[in-house]
């Protein structure tokens, strides 16, 4: 019975140690993050803007045409009517 109590006691100590340990890890992580954050913000001022080419998505089957105005027309001031035609051939 005494051995059993000791076991529980030991288990509690282990649990306490683990929880303490992880919390100290957490705070270490936090401080590390803060350090890297401040480094990053310093770099941001110095670093140049980077330009990266993205992949252009193609869809040759989607066709769009301006039906109105037909082109080189002259309109009276005010409302100009537009008509767009969308077709997909795919």
């Amino acid at each position: 019975m005494k051995f059993y109590h000791n076991c529980i006691g030991l288990a509690l100590v282990v649990v306490a140690m683990i929880s303490c340990d992880s919390s100290s890890n957490k705070s270490e992580n936090l401080s590390e993050e803060q350090v890297t954050d401040s480094i990053a913000s310093v770099e941001e001022v110095v670093e140049k803007i980077s330009f990266g080419q993205l992949q252009a998505e193609m869809n040759p089957d989607a066709m769009l045409d301006i039906y109105n105005p037909i082109g080189n027309e002259n309109f009276k001031e005010g409302k100009v009517s537009f008509l767009l035609i969308f077709e997909t051939t795919g």
């Binding site: 252009a56 998505e57 193609m58 869809n59 040759p60 989607a62 066709m63 769009l64 045409d65 301006i66 105005p69 037909i70 082109g71 080189n72 027309e73 002259n74 309109f75 009276k76 001031e77 100009v80 537009f82 767009l84 969308f86």
Partner: peptide, 30 residues
């Protein structure tokens, strides 16, 4: 000059010939 074009699902323009259309016109005898 009006230029009409289509967008893909990501909200980016489709850029190939036929995906867009352009027209010039004037208003008020400009």
């Amino acid at each position: 000059r009006a230029v009409a074009f289509l967008l893909n699902e990501e909200g980016l323009s489709l850029k190939e010939y036929g995906n867009f259309s352009a027209r010039d016109f004037t208003v008020g005898e400009s």
